[in-house]
Nucleic acid binder design. Structure first.
Lengths: 158, 158
DNA sequence: TGCTAAGGTTCTAAAAAGGAACCATTTAAG
DNA sequence: CTTAAATGGTTCCTTTTTAGAACCTTAGCA
């Protein structure tokens, strides 16, 4: 299977990965959450080639994660749409995993303070209904409305 | 910057992406959470080439996400370590985002039932301390212990 | 003994990433 | 008014990765 076909699978993980699952995209998004908005800043901070950055930003705009906002004659910057901002939990979950498992014993490079309660936070995934923390064993999968709604039945057998 | 250098950055997102941030790895992990354990099954379900699958599994074992468990003479299967199982929130957050933003109006392909409370769950990221849902605006970043602990100071200026 | 299945490796072609150089606007400086 | 420099790219070429197919090795079994 070619990579481009992955986005056609009827699976939310596959479709998400088709959008953000390449080498640089999540790093671009990370920096956008930190406040980066302009082409040159992304390029300097990430050190990727202009060619790639240009391509990735274009794709992120196409998908609807960023929008181009003019800030001068003929200049514009890249800002999150709601769709883009909604990726924050993905970023947080990666951060939390990296902090926990890849810190080489040195502790997390950054700490996350929850403004509302003022404490150091560990991002935690919970059930929206009962608020309990969720692990793989706590979850059961069931077919949903989007599963058989088209001809594409090439998804995993769960 | 070459991709291989990204893993050296003193940033948990970058280090996480260096491990799971390529095209196929998270899909392999997704299937592992569904129960897939054997080479041939991964290959059939994902449709990626044996070459790549072999390489990715090897890397996942090296990193410590999978361990090889023998199940016959000279045969073994790939199972999560604790480190690997800890990736579940990353998978859930991607799923939730895809369900919310990429369903093309058809609804989620799969529903997630939280066994403990029996309800359809939307995975939600909360603060470990106060339990409130977290968005990008609620979080403040602070230098942590791992930030200046080595010569590598090439991280983002937050 | 020969067949099949699992779990690969090797080979080649196609696609993507990396690096450097170049270009078109716009603003700023002399 | 002319030149310089910054922004936001594009083009061209080389090096890496992927994709796809074919081949190999070991174990179990008829």
């Amino acid at each position: 299977m070619k990579w481009d076909d992955v986005g056609q699978l009827n699976c939310s993980v596959a479709r998400t990965l088709a959008v953000i699952g390449d080498r640089w995209t999540m790093l671009i998004i990370r920096n956008a959450f930190i406040g980066t908005r302009r082409f040159a800043d992304f390029q300097e901070q990430l050190g990727l080639t202009k060619h790639l950055l240009s391509d990735r930003l274009k794709r992120l705009v196409d998908v609807g994660i960023f929008k181009k906002v003019p800030y001068q004659q003929g200049r514009y910057e890249y800002r999150f749409t709601d769709m883009g901002r909604a990726l924050y939990p993905v970023l947080l979950s990666m951060t939390a995993w990296g902090d926990a498992w890849l810190d080489e014993g040195k502790g997390a490079p950054l700490l996350y303070i929850h403004k509302d309660c003022g404490k150091k936070m560990i991002p935690t995934m919970v059930c929206s209904e009962c608020g309990d923390a969720v692990t793989a064993r706590d979850v059961m999968i069931q077919p949903g409305p989007g599963l058989y709604s088209d001809a594409n039945t090439t998804q995993h057998s769960s």
